[in-house]
Structure formats: C-alpha cells, structure tokens
C-alpha cells in the first residue's frame, strides 16, 4: 500500500470534505458532489478542479467509479483507511499493553533519576 500517495490525497481539505460527502451519501455523480461542495466551499471550486481532486482520490484507492446506465457514480473505498489505521496508526496510537507499561516505567525511572 502506497502510504505517501494516501497521505498526499488526504492532505487537502477539499478532498477530505469530498470523502465526508460520500460517506453521507455514497454513489454520487460529479454534478451532485459539485453542488454539495459549492454549498460548503463557496463558488470557487470549478468542475475541472473537482475532476482533478476525484482523480487524486481514485489513484490513492480512496474511491472507485461505477457506470450506471450512462452516468458515472463515485463510491467511497474505506479499505485503504482501515489498512492505514491497522498497519501504521494503531501501533503508534495504541501501543500494546506491555510496551506502554514499560514506557511508563521508563518515564517514572527517568523522573526519579534512576
């Protein structure tokens, strides 16, 4: 899994908002997503800019597209987020009990000058 690509995709507030909007209603067309973002973001976001953001998210594996009849719909892919959490974030955020206990002991020892 390409963490760099994933974090770059997530490092933009508009793209994070797009994921939030898809979490609220999955399977949106470009039009719906654009209307939703404009009502949040103001009129400054062009459809071309939105297309680019969609491409970045798709390349990071965070969304997939599906044609329904003749319209393209966008779906949130949650698995890269779960993988990122399992592989890298959780071990940092929630170290196993023993390691945490050892680290706490080390800090106490340090403070006690041992």
């Amino acid at each position: 899994m390409d963490f760099d690509r994933l974090f770059r995709a997530l490092a933009d507030p508009t793209r994070r908002r797009m994921l939030d909007e898809l979490a609220e209603r999955d399977g949106q067309t470009l039009f719906e997503l654009h209307v939703r973002l404009i009502s949040w973001h103001g009129a400054s976001l062009s459809r071309q800019a939105l297309s680019k953001h969609l491409q970045v998210l798709e390349e990071a594996g965070l969304l997939r597209t599906e044609w329904r009849w003749r319209s393209k719909h966008h779906f949130l892919e949650r698995s890269p987020l779960r993988q990122m959490w399992d592989v890298w974030m959780r071990p940092l955020a929630e170290p196993p009990e023993k390691e945490r206990a050892d680290a706490d002991q080390d800090r106490r020892d340090e403070r006690a000058g041992r």
Partner: peptide, 10 residues
C-alpha cells in the same frame, strides 16, 4: 448530451 449525462448534469 452524452457528456452531460456522464457527469450527472441536468
């Protein structure tokens, strides 16, 4: 028309 429909634009 096809391009509008693809992007969901009415």
């Amino acid at each position: 028309k096809t391009a509008l429909v693809a992007d969901g634009i009415p």
